[in-house]
Structure formats: structure tokens, C-alpha cells
Nucleic acid binder design. Structure first.
Length: 940
RNA sequence: GCGGGCAUAACUCAGCGGUAGAGUGCGACCUUCACACGGUCGAAGUCACAGGUUCAAAUCCUGUUGCCCGCACCA
């Protein structure tokens, strides 16, 4: 039987096939065994139901899938818990837009019909991302997919809310919150996006009520004058000493406000040193208001218009009112100065609406006691955070924890299970809809219309998905989960809150390790956004796309093709200059590329050429296998022995490659355990490409094509085993190509499952473990010599410009019997790889004239140049070598002449330096002798 | 303002106490029967700057400069 592979690897053909096959085989399914010791679990950071795959998802799915696949191959009962969250604001925005396009609105439909509509939208177009994760090769247990709004998660949310309320950790209170007029809801402090923008600082005068003059204050929001309840000055400010305590006239209302002294709010050096105080519409003023017991005057309606406190401006929109107030002050002769001013503006992320601080009753979680426990858990090592740079940030945030506002004025979400009694106004909080008031027994109850923050349900995710509040077998098996892997940017949003709730409700941390990754940015390090026109769709990299398609997807709708292309080229200069689209690089390539980035990087600057490089690596795997398969034919026979040969049977090259495999296996395992996928990918790439392909395959060719059947059999098995082992090591990062190629190998060389049973797929074959293969120092030394001779000869060829077609008559003078034997054994290989007509073993004696010369491990490599090139060219090359050798030797000698070094450095350090000096000196001596010969020849 | 991080080859980044590494890019040569998505050879770095600790510092400490990220402030 002969398996023929096409010349190049085509991921588009391979990837979908294997995904379907894995699912069919049920390999991703976990079991609720109750055996926690053998369980491995990661709860997916649930993507938004509105979302579609972006680079961030591609990154997390690559990392988590690699960890999950490794654990599965190692024989753990592995659960990657999938699901999406309901994304309160985002979903309402999406569906509201849809409704607007249909000429209707949320309000028009009413709560019930609106929610029906959202569910309908969710069924049709929500959760597209879970399909896309399949394209990435992600291997969660899809049979357990959860949604934060499904029955199970909703029950957990109600239970959590009620318990926290009963424990006094949830309360309703009136505080200043960030109100979004456009989104019609409050948002939490964490979700506020601040940016510097240009604005105007407007100054005007407050007149004293007694007519004794004025105080000038400045503001960027003149309409808030209507809510002012004081003007503050610094108590130490001599300018205003007499003003303190006096009353000022409100320009638009029939009331007066006091001048107060406050050293916290007022910076004497800023502006006039006097500040208007609007406690109901500014966070600092709010605190000031509380300190001085000032009245809180709310001037805004929820729709952003001014309310009855807005006097003449009542009913006008906040921004109209601003203009009108300025004009009015102008007309009253109170306006003083206008100047351009940079200020930081708070906006809501989804709608870009300017947020208004407003005084509204909301529900809060009293976070402090929960945060203390989360803090302690990390300090006590119950949960580790990696990379550890983030621990300080974690500590800082949790020690300064703010109350968590959990109510949102949305319809889409978990409606708060609190009921207000019409009769006594008391609040009844209950798991199921109560029939009467818990206080007065009245039956006229109305449920709180607000819903909970999406993060509230997400915070329960690691255990709500496993069946909490019931005591389930799944919880017993998989809680605490093994790892939480996510972007550092949601350390607070999510990780901290999961920790708080996990510890509180489960009595145990929700995960043992927190692994954080960075943000995928464009080539220049800019965050991806449609505004910048630098968004890359991972699916375009996977399936291929033309440049116009890529560019169109990169930018906002409505951007001209020309502009979009210009922006794109700026963001990806090194790639865009080619003017090409993407070939279908495949999910494996995208994964491999993403895995090469170290986890400490807060930014991963997308290098499109590197994705290409990763694709090339897949092709390399393919072609190495394509080369090997015909030679492996005997291993396909019934009952063929595909075992790894014993060391005694193997040649030095065989032992060497197995030793290198052992090293790679070690590095890959270490990399995985230390959350360093970059080191895994480097190690496996180096082993496969630089060692297996560049050396072992080349050295094996003469053996495989030769007549020595025993050597052939050994090499065949070593080669097959190395390929097989490589595919297993690489599988967690490049699942598709490794599965495809592993399946093509003879069954006789394929590893079984971790439990010894036959593995039908590489995705369940035993993962390579440290100790599976033997290190072999003698073989490494031997091959260093053989490779050294070949490299030296190639170097002479290359530097002296010997033509490829010209064979050299290589001569080597070995420094030991071992070297002599290796030269004989690898005669064919050395000839082939250096394009030599022969390798003559040179007896000791005088150096011949007219040769290229090099020293390798004490042996002399001699390349006669007669008839090929002018031997004089060798002089320059030798001089360069000698100069380099002298410099190295000088450095080492200097160190050895330092008495302190000899006396104080570690014994091994001194010895290795001495050895180094000796070998450098010997080498230099030989090179100098060779140079002398060249000069002599030249002089004649 | 407070806190954190980063400065290493043209680019993107590893290395974090014992003679400077990778990939890309660059230059030269090669279509040799796995792969041009390839092969061989080569050029390229006072490891930001200034001090200190050490026998030894890219690596540890201090300071300076320049970037970046949080948090706060910006009337």
C-alpha cells in the first residue's frame, strides 16, 4: 500500500473534516465521575451572545484549547465548559436598532413582547461565535453548553441574590451613578470609558445676595448651575476670607446658596480658586455636599432633558440647555470668560453617549467583605495569578474596592427578585414570586423592574454552569476548576468577582490558577477598532480573503474603499506593501502564531508574516511526512514491529535525534505547565524543522536508500516514531494538521491512550511525557562533530564562492579514533551534504597548500581549491576567522588572569573557562599555521 | 498626582548573574529526486543612559531620560 500526499498542505480540505470526526467520536465529552483528583476543568470566559469571532477570542480559544487538549491527552477527565453570556446593554442596543429599522421601538412593544423579540433574535443570530470557535478547533463539551439566561443559570442568579440580600450584603441605596441617556441605564464605574477631549471652560459671576460684589466661578457644564447648592473656596485663601458664609444669588432661581470653605474640593491655584458645587451631578461635589450637608438638587430627567428644577430651561435637552444657559448669562451680564479646555469625558462604551452623574436609587453589593476573602485567597496561595506581574494590580484594586452597583435599567437580563408592597412600601426579596408582602401581608406587590448587571451572572459562571445551587456530581467532579484563562483587561470585571462569589457561595476558590493574556493589536501596537480600520477577522486568515474583502471588514461601514485601504496599509505596513490578500492559512497557523507570543506581553502586535510562517510550518510537517511515508511501508504490514529500537540497535544519528526529541518533550511539557506556550511552539518547531528535517532526514536518506536492511529497519522506526511523537507534542497547538498526519502513519508506531487502550485519534493519544525518550550525551557529541564537519565545509564553499555544481575533494584530519570512525560511518552523508566527491581521511603531517581550512572539535577540515577558485581568496577568510578567534581568546585569557576570578568564582566556572581557553588556543594555532601556508604559497 | 510595566539586530520579541538568541527582513548562491510555503552561506547589536553591588551584570540595586498601561484629578 502506498499513501500519496499532495505536494502542498491544504488546510481548507483537512480542518472541517477532523472537527466533525472528533465530535462524532465524542472525544470532547466529560464525565461526572465524582473523582476530582483526575478531573481537569476550564470554564470558558463566556463571549457575548452578540459577538462574532475576533482576535481576542482566537487568542483565548487557542490558549485554553491547548491546555484542555493537553490535559485530555494526559488522560484527565477533561471539561472545557462552553457558553455565552446575555450581554445586557449590547443585546438591547442590537435589538433596538433592529426594531428601529422596522419602524417600531422597545417602548412601543412593551417589556413582554420586547423580551420575546430578543429571544427570537438570540435563537436566530445570537451565539454565532460558538460556530466560529469550532472553526478554531476549540474542543469544549458542547453537550453542556450554557447561556447566562437559561433556566439553570437564572436559578443560580436568583439564589445568589436572595442569599446575599438575606446576609445583608445586597442593599438598595441612593448614590450618585453614571447614567446613560442613550442606553437608558446606569453603568458601573468599571465600564466608563474616559478620554481627553476638547471642551470649553466657561466663567461667570455669582453675585452676593447683599449686593457686595461677585465671585467668579468656571464650569464646563454651565447647565448644572441650576443644581448648584453652594460655591466653595479654600479656607486658607485670603481672597475669599470674608466671603465665607455669605449668600449668593442664583441667577435663574429665586434662592440663594452659601459660600463654603472646603480644602478637599478646592485647589487655590486652579482658575479663580472658587468652585461651584452641584452635589447631585458631580462625584466630587457629591462628597462635598455630604460633608457640608448641602441640599441635593436633581435637574435632569432620565431622558436627558431638564426637569422642573430647570426653571426656564425645563424640558430642554441637556446640550441645548447648556447653550441657552450661556446665552442667558451673557444677556444678564454675568458671563465672564470662555476658553478652550482639555478635559476628560466619560462615555458609555456601546453607545458613546456622554454619561451623566445622577442621583438614583440602585441595588448594590457590599463588596468589601467579599473582596477581603478574594485577597486572602491569593495571598495564601489558594489561587495563583500568572504572569505574577498582575498580582500587584489585583491587590491594589481589591484593597480599594468600591461598592458594586448591580442594577441596570434594562429589560434584557435577570429581573431583580424584589417586590415592593403597594401598601407598606416594604421590599420582599424571594426565590419565587411571593403572593403577599412579607411585612404587612398585603397582596398587591410589584416586582422591581430593574435587571441585574450581566457580570453578576457571569460571576457565578464557574459553578452555576455545573448545576449550583444543587449539589451535583458535576460540581463534585469539577469544582474548583483547574484554570481560569482570560485577558488581563477583565481581571476586575470578572475574575475578581468570580473569586468573590466562588469563595462566598462554594466555600472554596473557583479556580486554582488564573492565567492572563494580553490584547491582540495591529502591527504598530494600536488596539484594533473599526474606527482605526485595523480590525483583522481571524476567519479571513483561516479561510483566506482578498485584499478588498479584508480592508472592507477592517473599517467602519461607510468608509470609502480608498480610505480604508490607506488606513489598513498604515496599520500593517510590512504586509500591506505586498498588496495581496490572505491565502487560506488555516486555523492551525493562526493558533500556532498566537501561541508564539509570551503571556507577559500586554500587547500582541499582529505580525501577518508570522501567520504565514506558521502556515509554512504546517506545510513542512506535511512534506516531511510525504517524504517519509514511502519508506515506512513495511511498518503498515500486519503484525509489523513499530517499536522504538533499543539504543544498541541505533546509529549515533538515530540516538541523537531521539535525544533531541527527549529534550523537546521536556521543553514542551515545561512550557505547558508554566503557561509558556511560546516556549512550547519554539521547542517543537526547532525540533521538527531544524533537527528532524534539516539534519536527521538528510542523514537518513543514504541509509533508507541503502542496502543495509537492519540499519534501514532501525532508521525507519526511529523516523516514524519521531514524526508520531512530534504530532502528539504539537497537537494541542495545531490540532488539525497533526491529526491528519498522525492518521497517515502506520498503526504500529502510533501511541496508545494514556490508559493503554488503542487511540483512534491523536487527540486522545497519550501526551509525550518527560522520560519517554532517553537523553544521550555521547550521541550529541558525535553528531556535533559530524554536523560541524559538514557546516565547516559548507561554510568554506559558501564564503569562497565555490559553485554548487563543483564537487570538492574533502579531506579531514580527525583528532581522535572516534572521529575517524564517524567520518567513515557518515562518509555518504558528508559527501551528499557538502557536495563532495569523497571524504579522505588525512594522515598527520604538514598542511597542504591551496586549500580551504577549518578546525572542528580539534579535527582539521581541508578543502582543496585547485581548479575551483583562486586559493588566495582563502587568505582573507582565514584572517577573518583568526581575528575572531583572537578576540575570543583574549577575552577568556583576561578572565583567567584575574586572580579574583580564580579565587572566588565557582570551580566549574573556572574549569570551563580554562577548557574554553585551551580549545580556542589550539584552534587558533591551527588556523595560523594554515594561514602561513597560504601566504607561503602566495609568495611563490 | 499615585501605582505598575517596558527600553536587547532594520522590525516583532525571547533571554533575566557566567563568552549576545529566535523569527521576519536584508545580501549572495541554489530549482539536487519531501517541501521555493524550500535549501545553503553570510552581514547585522558599546543589550536606553549614568552610577553601584559582584571575581563576573543585558540579567541584581539606585538614579536619569523616553515610551506604555491602570487609578485619581482636570471647577
Amino acid at each position: 500500500m502506498t499513501i500519496e500526499l499532495s505536494k502542498g498542505y491544504d488546510p481548507t480540505d483537512v480542518e472541517p473534516r477532523w472537527y466533525a470526526e472528533w465530535i462524532r467520536a465524542g472525544h470532547f465529552n466529560a464525565e461526572d465521575t465524582g473523582d476530582a483528583a483526575n478531573a481537569y476543568c476550564i470554564a470558558i470566559p463566556p463571549p457575548n451572545v452578540t459577538g462574532s469571532l475576533h482576535m481576542g477570542h482566537a487568542l483565548f480559544s487557542t490558549i485554553q484549547d491547548a491546555l484542555i487538549r493537553t490535559a485530555r491527552m494526559r488522560g484527565f477527565n477533561t471539561l472545557w465548559q462552553p457558553g455565552v453570556d446575555h450581554a445586557g446593554i449590547a443585546t438591547e442596543v442590537v435589538v433596538s436598532r433592529l426594531l428601529a429599522s422596522e419602524g417600531t421601538s422597545r417602548k412601543e412593544l412593551g417589556r413582554e413582547r420586547f423580551l420575546q423579540r430578543v429571544w427570537q433574535w438570540k435563537e436566530q443570530s445570537g451565539g454565532r461565535i460558538t460556530e466560529q470557535l469550532r472553526t478554531m478547533g476549540a474542543s469544549p463539551d458542547w453537550s453542556r453548553e450554557r447561556f447566562t439566561m437559561d433556566e439553570q443559570c437564572s436559578r443560580a442568579v436568583r439564589e445568589a441574590f436572595v442569599r446575599l440580600y438575606e446576609e445583608g450584603l445586597i442593599y438598595r441605596g441612593e448614590r450618585l451613578v453614571n447614567w446613560s441617556v442613550k442606553a437608558q441605564t446606569v453603568i458601573s464605574d468599571l465600564e466608563v470609558e474616559r478620554a481627553e477631549e476638547d471642551g470649553e471652560l466657561f466663567s461667570f459671576a455669582y453675585l452676593f445676595a447683599d449686593g457686595s460684589g461677585e465671585i467668579i466661578v468656571a464650569t464646563t457644564r454651565p447647565e448644572t448651575i441650576l443644581g448648584d447648592t453652594a460655591v466653595a473656596v479654600h479656607p486658607d485663601d485670603p481672597r475669599y476670607k470674608d466671603a465665607i458664609g455669605k449668600q449668593l444669588k442664583c441667577p435663574f432661581a429665586d434662592r440663594t446658596i452659601p459660600v463654603i470653605a472646603d480644602s478637599v474640593l478646592v485647589d487655590m491655584k486652579f482658575g479663580t480658586g472658587a468652585v461651584k458645587v452641584t452635589p447631585a451631578h458631580d462625584f466630587n461635589d457629591y462628597e462635598t455636599g455630604r460633608r457640608h450637608s448641602l441640599p441635593f438638587i436633581n435637574i435632569l430627567n432620565l431622558d436627558g432633558t431638564l426637569n422642573e428644577n430647570g426653571a426656564a430651561f425645563a424640558g430642554r435637552d441637556r446640550f441645548d440647555a447648556r447653550k441657552a444657559v450661556k446665552k442667558a448669562l451673557d444677556e444678564m451680564g454675568l458671563a465672564r470668560e470662555r476658553k478652550q479646555h482639555r478635559l476628560s469625558i466619560a462615555r458609555e462604551a456601546r453607545t458613546a453617549d456622554i454619561l451623566e452623574p445622577m442621583l438614583l436609587p440602585q441595588w448594590y453589593v457590599h463588596a468589601k467583605p467579599l473582596a477581603d476573602k478574594a485577597l486572602a485567597a491569593v495571598r495564601e496561595g489558594k489561587t495563583t495569578i500568572e504572569p505574577e506581574e498582575w498580582v500587584k494590580t489585583w491587590e491594589h484594586w481589591l484593597t480599594n474596592i468600591q461598592e458594586w452597583c448591580i442594577s441596570r435599567q434594562l429589560w434584557w437580563g435577570h429581573q431583580i427578585p424584589a417586590w415592593y408592597c403597594d401598601a407598606c412600601k416594604e421590599i420582599t426579596v424571594a426565590r419565587t414570586t411571593p403572593s403577599k408582602c412579607s411585612k404587612c401581608g398585603h397582596t398587591s406587590l410589584k416586582q422591581e423592574s430593574d435587571v441585574l448587571d450581566t457580570w453578576f451572572s457571569s460571576a457565578l459562571w464557574p459553578f452555576s454552569t455545573l448545576g449550583w445551587p444543587d449539589k451535583t456530581k458535576a460540581l463534585e467532579t469539577f469544582y474548583p476548576t483547574s484554570v481560569m484563562e482570560t485577558g488581563y483587561d477583565i481581571l476586575f470585571f470578572w475574575v475578581a468577582r468570580m473569586m468573590m462569589f466562588g469563595i462566598h457561595f462554594m466555600g472554596e476558590v473557583p479556580f486554582k490558577r488564573v492565567l492572563l493574556h494580553g490584547m491582540v493589536c495591529d502591527e504598530r501596537g494600536e488596539k484594533m477598532s473599526k474606527v482605526k480600520g485595523n480590525v483583522i477577522d481571524p476567519l479571513h486568515l483561516i479561510h483566506g480573503a482578498t485584499l478588498p474583502t479584508i480592508v472592507e471588514a477592517a473599517s467602519q461601514r461607510g468608509t470609502s474603499a480608498e480610505d480604508a485601504l490607506k488606513k489598513f496599509k498604515q496599520c500593517y505596513p510590512s504586509y500591506a506593501e505586498r498588496g495581496e490578500g490572505f491565502a487560506a492559512f488555516g486555523a492551525d497557523a493562526v493558533r500556532f502564531y498566537l501561541a508564539t507570543n509570551p503571556p507577559q506581553a500586554t500587547r500582541i502586535n499582529l505580525q501577518l508574516r508570522q501567520v504565514e510562517r506558521a502556515r509554512n510550518f504546517a506545510n513542512k510537517l506535511w512534506n516531511a511526512t510525504r517524504f517519509a511515508l514511502p519508506y515506512l511501508e513495511p511498518l503498515f504490514d500486519e503484525g509489523a514491529d513499530g517499536s522504538m529500537p533499543s539504543a544498541a540497535e541505533m546509529s549515533p544519528a538515530d540516538r541523537w535525534i531521539v535525544a533531541r526529541l527527549a529534550a523537546a518533550t521536556e521543553e514542551v511539557n515545561r512550557g505547558l505547565d508554566e503557561f509558556r506556550l511560546d516556549e512550547c511552539s519554539t521547542a517543537i518547531r526547532r525540533f521538527f524543522w531544524d533537527e528532524l528535517c534539516d539534519w536527521y532526514l538528510e542523514l537518513s536518506k543514504p541509509v533508507l536508500n541503502g542496502a543495509d536492511e537492519r540499519a534501514k529497519s532501525t532508521t525507519r522506526r526511529v523516523l516514524a516514531r519521531c514524526l508520531e511523537a512530534s504530532f502528539r507534542l504539537l497537537h494541542p497547538i495545531m490540532p488539525f494538521v497533526t491529526e491528519e498526519l498522525w492518521q497517515k502513519l502506520p498503526a504500529s508506531v502510533r501511541a496508545p491512550r494514556a490508559n493503554g487502550a488503542v487511540a483512534t485519534h491523536v487527540c486522545v493519544a497519550k501526551f509525550g511525557a518527560i522520560g519517554d525518550y532517553a537523553r544521550d550525551e555521547a550521541a550529541e557529541r558525535a553528531l556535533a562533530f559530524v554536523q560541524g564537519v559538514i557546516t565547516a565545509a559548507r561554510n568554506i564553499r559558501g564564503e569562497l564562492g565555490i559553485k554548487q555544481k563543483d564537487a570538492i575533494a574533502l579531506r579531514v584530519r580527525p583528532a581522535s579514533d572516534e572521529q575517524r570512525a564517524l567520518l567513515t560511518q557518515y562518509d555518504a552523508q558528508i559527501r551528499a551534504l557538502t557536495i563532495a566527491s569523497g571524504v579522505t581521511i588525512e594522515a598527520p603531517g604538514r598542511r597542504p597548500r591551496g586549500v580551504g581550512f577549518a578546525v572542528v572539535e580539534g579535527a582539521e577540515v581541508i578543502v582543496p581549491l585547485a581548479g575551483l577558485i583562486d586559493p588566495a581568496a582563502e587568505q582573507a577568510r582565514l584572517e577573518k576567522e583568526i581575528a575572531k578567534g583572537k578576540k575570543d581568546l583574549e577575552k577568556v585569557n583576561k578572565q583567567l588572569s584575574n586572580e579574583n576570578f580564580i579565587a572566588r568564582a565557582a570551580v566549574e566556572a573556572v574549569q570551563s573557562t580554562r577548557d574554553e581557553a585551551a580549545s580556542l588556543a589550539a584552534r587558533l594555532g591551527k588556523l595560523e599555521e594554515a594561514l602561513a601556508v597560504v601566504r607561503e604559497a602566495d609568495a611563490r
